[in-house]
Write a protein that binds this DNA or RNA. Structure first.
Lengths: 204, 204
DNA sequence: AAGACAATGTTTCCACTGTAAACTTCTTAC
DNA sequence: GTAAGAAGTTTACAGTGGAAACATTGTCTT
């Protein structure tokens, strides 16, 4: 039996590194992240992190994975507070997604910004698939319910994901505020964008 | 009178650097780009690029700016080949955008991936605004034409931009193929996604 | 309780990076 | 033709990612 909670030398360094990494990215941007600085703040040597992460990319992948897991969890939490129909849940999906991105911009960028595809890193891939799965299920349920028009659910999920992802990216990259779109507050902007999409999903 | 076309020592090094940078990003990914390697391939010392770009970020910003300009130009070219209504042009906007992203994934990622907002770099900002402006104008024209329902054009442009941007990002990050969505070919996927959005724009 | 063993952290090392400063060499305007 | 400024070079430095060999500590077996 391995006691996970018991500290070895440092005391759950892996988790500490992840938290420090996120904080650092938040403070100085994603590419300013440095393994050495993370180690420094954790109070360990600059090579200690390599016991827990193969390399820098691997550390970032772990941050990303955690992000997907958080996102799924938060969405599900919102679900449980939404006792309504599937359409309501579908909207929750969109809103929760965007809210996550806005509240965790640094992490969000890591989740998608790396450029290099998740490829082999199956843990990361699984986490991201879980997130997509949530959306897909919602759409299927809506179709059963009759609140979303028939059609290949995959394609509709793709469209839905595209819009919330796109909006999130633009928002956190400041492209929106820069273009003088801050007339409306954030929440109503979100609603507008999401509604435009769902308008295209309506039956009839 | 300054003769721009005449080579000094190297011969239009600035442009050469830009081209090499893009090629490098294409080959090895955006963060593998190194000023020294760019210089090496250009056959100059590793500090020569600093005569043309303040720093690495500045070089990347120039690559991004060029990208926006290319995108606008290509869209306009497509416009001139589209003698039809404004709605047709609006669709061209979406398709051309996605096509650009797909054909220039490396550059596209630089255009949006940096994380750091364009902020002060006004040349980059202007180029990106031109691209957004094209979309905005299309929507306004469609509204005049009656092929897009009334409503704040800014908001609709935002929605439209979100979806094409989101789709592009997901596509070039391989998130789509990874999720087993390659059933449809690229072109029909594009059409489907764009159509879902425009369905929400329809009058009535 | 006593080692053996694997997990964790450290030291030392290396090739490489971004960029500043002071320099040389070329181009062009006068 | 010469002075000035632009373009490219040399040299230097601190910081980085990561490999390798070493030291330490907790855990497992007996």
């Amino acid at each position: 039996m391995k006691k996970i909670s018991t500290p070895y030398h440092h005391g759950n360094l892996r988790q500490a590194l992840l938290e420090i990494a996120v904080k650092l990215i938040r403070e100085r941007g994603a590419d300013a992240l440095t393994i050495r600085e993370v180690a420094r703040r954790a109070g360990v040597t600059h090579t200690a992190p390599y016991r827990h992460f193969k390399d820098k990319a691997s550390l970032l992948a772990a941050v990303a994975r955690e992000g997907f897991e958080m996102m799924v969890k938060e969405t599900k939490d919102q679900f449980s507070r939404t006792t309504q129909d599937a359409l309501a849940r579908l909207k929750v999906c969109g809103i929760a997604y965007i809210e996550f991105a806005i509240h965790n911009p640094a992490r969000y960028r890591v989740m998608f910004g790396t450029g290099r595809p998740h490829g082999k890193n199956s843990a990361l891939r699984k986490a991201s698939e879980a997130s997509f799965g949530l959306l897909l299920e919602c759409i299927k349920e809506c179709q059963k319910e009759g609140t979303v028009r028939p059609g290949e659910p995959m394609e509709m999920a793709l469209a839905a994901w595209s819009i919330v992802h796109g909006f999130s990216m633009l928002f956190i990259d400041n492209q929106i505020r820069e273009k003088g779109l801050f007339a409306a507050d954030r929440e109503s902007m979100m609603d507008v964008v999401v509604d435009h999409l769902y308008a295209g999903f309506k039956p009839n």
